[in-house]
């Protein structure tokens, strides 16, 4: 086969995959008129769901950044066995099906779970509450943020740390005054990726937090709920989630 033929086949393969990725979204857009869209936006399910989604994702990503940035910094400088083990643990939620994450969270934080028993003794109940929504989102989104942050920290030359410390900066000062500011573009990409993942989180939330309208029903859960009774409403909600995702991708591509 000649070079041109190989290139042609390559184009065909590429176009086929591109079509597979773009077709569902385009069909979603094509199926919704402006009237239907507006009707969806004013539906009583929409605002509680989107509002809960936004509030919980802001909270969960805030926690992920707070806890994940120092962890990523540490992991970026680790070559030991403990470092490798930590990488496996951090990446676990990516390879676990979301429903399995939900079951595992129930097992850990549910009333009869390992940690949940301790919480119950203190009169605290996590599962099927807004806290469960946040924990589920944190669990599935954290790997994306931590991974992006590790890459951002790794890009910085080790000489930078040595110079900063030779100028009298303690390891914490190096982290806060040099590491974080230099890694900012990568950290922001990580935040957006993790946020998009948290916003779209469905399986773990359904299992661990339930689908209680006005309580734990996020937008993806509202789509699931609407699918059973009003397919057009589900389409509108889906389109809104896609649009939010698109904005995130556009912002990331600017960094």
């Amino acid at each position: 086969m000649g070079t041109q033929a190989i290139r042609f086949v390559g184009y065909i393969f590429g176009a086929a995959l591109l079509g597979l990725l773009a077709l569902p979204v385009t069909s979603l857009v094509g199926a919704i008129s402006v009237q239907k869209f507006l009707a969806g936006v004013y539906h009583p399910l929409f605002w509680p769901a989107i509002s809960l989604s936004l509030r919980t994702t802001i909270l969960s990503i805030g926690f992920v950044v707070l806890l994940g940035t120092p962890l990523a910094w540490w992991m970026a400088h680790q070559t030991s066995r403990i470092g490798r083990l930590t990488t496996v643990v951090v990446h676990l939620p990516i390879i676990m099906p979301p429903a399995v994450v939900g079951v595992a969270l129930l097992q850990a934080f549910g009333r009869k779970g390992w940690f949940g028993t301790l919480l119950s003794a203190q009169g605290l109940n996590v599962s099927f509450t807004v806290a469960a929504v946040v924990i589920a989102q944190m669990t599935v989104a954290a790997p994306f943020y931590v991974q992006a942050s590790i890459q951002a920290f790794k890009k910085i030359s080790p000489d930078v740390w040595v110079v900063a410390r030779s100028l009298g900066a303690s390891p914490i000062e190096v982290f806060l005054r040099v590491g974080v500011p230099m890694a900012i573009p990568g950290l922001i990409s990580g935040v957006l990726l993790a946020w998009a993942r948290a916003l779209g989180e469905f399986g773990a939330t359904l299992v661990f937090a339930g689908n209680r309208v006005g309580h734990t029903q996020t937008l993806p859960l509202a789509i699931f709920y609407a699918l059973e009774s009003d397919i057009e409403l589900a389409l509108v909600f889906s389109l809104i989630l896609v649009l939010v995702g698109l904005v995130v991708i556009l912002v990331i591509s600017q960094w």
């Binding site: 930078v160 040595v162 900063a164 030779s166 303690s170 500011p181 230099m182």
Partner: peptide, 29 residues
């Protein structure tokens, strides 16, 4: 520890902090 040694170190590529201007780089220490 490195930060307590009072040893000035300039690596090959004259490592400066890119998020600071010249004077803030010099005043960092």
């Amino acid at each position: 520890p490195v930060e307590d040694r009072q040893v000035g170190y300039v690596p090959q590529d004259y490592t400066l902090f890119p998020h600071m201007n010249v004077i803030n780089n010099v005043a960092f220490g």
